[in-house]
């Protein structure tokens, strides 16, 4: 191809890109703008007002006027922390251990971790009903105990992120070196493996936080109030404030993902979900 032809081809490609991206962006961003538009309406006078946003940014006022929202928000934050904690305690040692000592089990661990992708949340709710009857009996009916189910929901994503991290370091050499210098397994885990997995742990945690904050199905069907359920319930009485909360949640999740795309290697960070496909190819 001559350079003139190539330049023409590049121009054509750029035009196509601009047209497609613009059209789809409009489709994506108009509803988000509509949310903002709706929250800034003054429903009484028909003009504009920032009242909804002022209320929302005043935490004292929100908790006073919308107790459900406060409960839901606190529950969701607690849920996010607990889910991340359980997920890390469960997965990091197990995955390291399997890699070091029980490589024969790696297939089955992978299979189990990816299983939730094929079990819809709504189906999981049906199956979890008797389990949660026991959880409620043993621990009480607080919303935070949903963290046990949420760990299952984030399992595939967390597994992928941590697996990519473990692949990138030589766990065996590192741990053998530490062990031969007299470190206990706990020290190996805490001072050798974990610091080396920093980026992977970080992205697994971010994903878990984002998924937890956006979870609705399980909480709603078990009649527990997390952020999304509070938003949903509030939508029936005070739509403006709940739309504002919804927009805020979307923006927050976007900021988290956008920041994550700069963390670690550019490629792996482009999209944490894309890793679901990348990895399979490496093993094939």
């Amino acid at each position: 191809m001559s350079s003139g032809q190539r330049a023409r081809f590049r121009r054509k490609q750029a035009i196509l890109r601009r047209v497609v991206v613009t059209v789809v962006m409009i489709f994506f961003l108009v509803p988000l703008y509509a949310m903002f538009d709706y929250t800034t309406r003054d429903l009484a006078s028909g003009g504009r007002s920032m009242r909804t946003w002022k209320t929302l940014l005043d935490f004292g006022k929100v908790s006073e006027q919308y107790p459900d929202l406060r409960t839901g928000f606190i529950a969701s934050v607690l849920l996010a922390v607990l889910t991340v904690a359980i997920m890390l305690v469960l997965l990091v040692p197990t995955m390291t251990w399997v890699r070091l000592r029980l490589p024969g089990l790696s297939r089955i661990v992978e299979f189990i971790c990816l299983l939730p992708l094929t079990v819809p949340a709504i189906v999981l709710v049906v199956g979890l009903t008797p389990i949660y009857a026991w959880v409620t009996y043993l621990l009480g009916g607080a919303t935070v105990w949903l963290c046990f189910a949420y760990v299952i929901l984030v399992l595939p994503y967390a597994y992928r992120a941590l697996d990519a991290g473990l692949r990138a370091i030589d766990v065996r050499t590192l741990s053998e070196a530490a062990r031969s210098l007299g470190a206990s397994w706990l020290t190996v885990m805490w001072r050798i493996v974990l610091p080396n997995l920093r980026t992977a742990v970080l992205s697994a945690s971010f994903l878990a936080v984002a998924l937890t904050l956006g979870e609705f199905t399980i909480a709603n069907l078990f009649s527990r109030t997390n952020l999304q359920v509070a938003m949903y319930l509030l939508g029936k009485s005070d739509a403006q404030i709940s739309v504002a909360v919804g927009l805020l949640a979307l923006v927050f999740a976007f900021v988290v993902l956008f920041a994550m795309s700069f963390v670690g290697s550019g490629r792996a960070g482009t999209s944490a979900f894309a890793r679901l496909r990348h990895h399979r190819k490496e093993t094939a």
Partner: peptide, 25 residues
């Protein structure tokens, strides 16, 4: 980066908020 992050949000965390966005539109 912008588009993949935006798509990540809409694809995975939308849920109730998407229904609201739709109603607001």
């Amino acid at each position: 980066r912008f588009l993949t992050s935006l798509c990540g949000v809409l694809a995975q965390f939308g849920g109730v908020a998407l229904a609201f966005a739709f109603l607001a539109t």
